[in-house]
Each structure stands twice: as structure tokens, then as C-alpha cells.
Amino acid sequence: MASVNSIYGLFADPDAADRGVNALRHAGVAQDQIVVMSSEPHEGHAFSLLDHKTIMPWLAALGGVVGGACGFLLARYTQVAYPEPLITGGMPLVAPFPSAIVTYELTMMGAVITTVVTLLITARLLKWKQPLYDSEISYGKILVGVLGPSGAARTDLENRLRSAGAEKIKTTGQL
């Protein structure tokens, strides 16, 4: 943790956290340097809108289409893959209804898998070593901070965070 330079404030009040985020943005901190962390989603607050755009539903739909195609091909191939046709009950080899059922199930499975993988990647999960974290978040605090600020801007940022209503200001790394 100590290897990363950062400065952050801990807020108790989500409205104050909102002001903190905007204060940092007004100070000209780039969006990818601003870090916000909370133990609740705080929907309806401005900071909850920070990079909330995602094409996840479209990816899920695409995953569904791929899954369904795999399902149909699997259903088809496994029934015609024999030198002699394996007939059962007088049904056609690629029986429409059973193939549709398998296609459907694998469509849904494709969509589910894509959603999970997209979530893991785009939410940057499965990275256990986070550059910046404070366990006070789990006691209800909201962290608003800057990753890798320039040393010169330190006092300015501290003041901005404090005037927005930060309860505590902390720094990490060589600042």
C-alpha cells in the first residue's frame, strides 16, 4: 500500500462526499485519478454515477447468441456424428424440439457466463492487492481521494477535501 502516493479524505455524510468529489474535479484532477469507495452503493448520489456506463447488457446478449449457437451445433453434431444413423423412436436425427431446448438452455448459460466474466473484468475484481484502501469504509465512511497527486498540489487538495466536509485526511506513500 505504501508504495502508492495518494491523498484521501474520509467522509461520514454522502452529501459531503459528493462535494468532495466535485471539489477534486474542480481542482483539475483527472477522472481516473479520483478514487471513491463506500460500503453502500449510495444510489442517487452524484459520485455513484462515476463511470457507470457499461455495455454489459449487450455483451450478455452477444454471449447468449454465442452460447445458443454452440448449443445448437452441439445438439446437431452429437446426433449425426456416427457412421450409421442412430435412430430412436422414429424421430429425425436432428429432432427440432429437443434441439431447441438445448439451444435455449445454452443461450441462457452463455449470457450468464458472459455477465459474470464482464463483471469480474470491468469491475476490476479478482485483484486482491488494491493500491488504496482503508478499512474504515466498512464502518460506514466514504473514501474520496486522489491517486498519485503531484506533491505541490497536496495542500490545495487537502484544503478542498476538508472544506467539503471530510472528517479525516490521510496520505499514503512518499508525499
Binding site: 435412430i87 430412436t88 423412436g89 422414429g90
Partner: peptide
């Protein structure tokens, strides 16, 4: 035969 298509492993077939 009703017995054939329900077999999951093609043990029963025509």
C-alpha cells in the same frame, strides 16, 4: 418405440 428416444445414452436404439 417410446423406449428409444428417452434413453440418454443410446443404450436403447433402433
Amino acid at each position: 418405440a417410446p423406449c428409444e428416444p428417452v434413453c440418454p445414452t443410446f443404450a436403447s436404439y433402433h
